[in-house]
Amino acid sequence: MMTKPLMILLFAGVLGCLGPFAAAQPPRGPLVVSPQVHANKTVTFRYLAPSAREVLLNGGQFGASAVPMTKEAQGIWSVTVGPIKPDIYPYSFQVDGVTVMDPANVAFFPNERFKASLVDVPGDTPLVHALREVPHGTVTYEYYPSVSGTTGSVVIYTPPGYDKNTSQKYPVFYLISGTTDTEETYFKVGKTNFILDNLLAEGKAKPMIVVMPYGNVAARIAEQTGKPKPADPVVRDDAEAVSRAKAFETDLLTNIIPYVEKNYRAIPNRENRAIGGFSRGGGQTLRAAFGNMDKFAWVCSYSSYLSPQEMDRSFPQIGANPTNTNKQFKLLWVSVGSDDFLYQGTLEFMDYLKAKNVNFKSRITDGGHTWMNVKKYVAETTPMLFQ
Rank of each mutant, 00 (worst) to 15 (best):
R280W: 14
G149T: 05
T250P: 02
D120H: 14
F386P: 01
I364W: 02
A241T: 00
S167G: 15
G19H: 04
G282L: 09
Q224T: 01
G277P: 00
T285W: 05
Y162W: 01
T365F: 00
A52G: 09
H369P: 12
S303N: 03
T182H: 01
Y302N: 08
V139S: 05
N373Q: 07
E271K: 13
M384S: 03
V134Y: 02
T323V: 13
A320C: 05
M372T: 11
G226V: 13
Y264A: 04
G226M: 12
A39Y: 08
A297S: 13
P135I: 13
N193Y: 00
Q328R: 12
E310V: 12
V235Y: 02
S177I: 01
V334A: 06
Q224L: 07
K229M: 13
N105H: 05
L6E: 09
K115V: 11
R28F: 11
G291S: 12
P135V: 11
V43R: 12
L48C: 13
A288Y: 11
G367Q: 01
Q61F: 14
A247Q: 15
S303I: 02
G203Y: 03
G283L: 03
R28S: 14
P26V: 11
F248M: 07
P126F: 09
D120W: 12
S34F: 05
G63Y: 13
Y305M: 10
P90Q: 08
G281P: 13
Y186T: 02
P122Y: 07
P122C: 03
K354W: 15
P126I: 12
T180Y: 04
E133K: 15
F109G: 04
A64L: 10
T158W: 01
P103V: 04
R244F: 10
F108E: 14
Y47E: 04
M372R: 15
N40Y: 02
M293R: 12
F187N: 03
F248P: 14
L127S: 10
E184K: 09
Q317P: 10
D237E: 12
Q309F: 04
L175K: 01
